[in-house]
């Protein structure tokens, strides 16, 4: 029911009406999408996330015009998924070092084996606190004032520790975002992230 009115417009032949339908969707979804992207992509700034949201509705309109939008069902899942993918594009723009075909999440476990952090993480999982730790950390990244640090986070989002050296992270930040950052600054940002993450875990185990 939620998108029914908009979908009525989207299947009209008159493009003015279709555009009105897309704008109805835009008005309805823009704030939830901003909330979603803010939680999932804290490294992107407000303008980048708002721009990604605009791109969603430009894409929806293109699908309508091309006749490829399936209007039988609610559009919310599609809209959120396009938003996520546009935000990933924004994070990875001009990226040169994203390994293709590698499943980052599947390899994280290897790094946790036989480490204190791994033990703490397992305990946090038993206490059902890992989600809270992740949320707190992303909130921390979202409030970073220095753009350089946010951009280091953007690169780290697609790289496990042995995949990129600090120098390669600095190069990647320069390539993707045009921001010059030294290896020392990369190291400093990573240390700040690690301290925050470690503290967030430890606090939940007390």
């Amino acid at each position: 029911m939620l998108d029914l009115e908009a979908r009525c417009f989207l299947i009209e032949n008159d493009d003015n009406k279709r555009q009105a339908g897309v704008r109805m969707l835009f008005n309805r979804y823009q704030r939830p999408l901003m909330g979603f992207l803010g939680d999932r992509f804290p490294d992107l700034n407000d303008d980048e996330r708002a721009s990604a949201i605009n791109d969603v509705f430009v894409e929806i309109h293109k699908k309508v015009v091309a006749g490829t939008l399936i209007t039988n069902d609610e559009l919310s899942g599609l809209i959120f998924t396009i938003a996520k993918r546009r935000a990933i594009d924004s994070r990875r723009k001009n990226a040169r070092r994203i390994p293709s075909g590698v499943k980052l999440l599947e390899e994280v476990g290897d790094y946790l084996k036989d480490t204190e952090t791994g033990s703490d993480w397992r305990l946090a999982a038993i206490l059902d606190k890992t989600q809270d730790v992740g949320d707190e950390f992303r909130q921390f990244v979202k409030t970073l004032k220095a753009a350089q640090q946010s951009r280091v986070a953007s690169v780290m989002a697609d790289a496990l520790p042995d995949w990129l050296t600090d120098r390669e992270i600095a190069d990647e930040v320069k390539t993707r975002f045009g921001i010059h950052i030294s290896q020392l600054e990369v190291k400093g940002a990573k240390q700040a992230f690690m301290k925050k993450f470690r503290d967030a875990i430890k606090r939940r185990l007390k």
Partner: peptide, 29 residues
């Protein structure tokens, strides 16, 4: 190794894959 474990968790918490967004997540927002 401990630092790398932390870095790996940081990467995992920031990482987003291309999979469709799940309905409960959509519903939350």
């Amino acid at each position: 190794r401990d630092n790398k474990a932390l870095e790996a968790l940081i990467a995992a918490s920031l990482h987003q894959d291309q999979n469709p967004v799940e309905p409960p997540v959509v519903a939350k927002y």
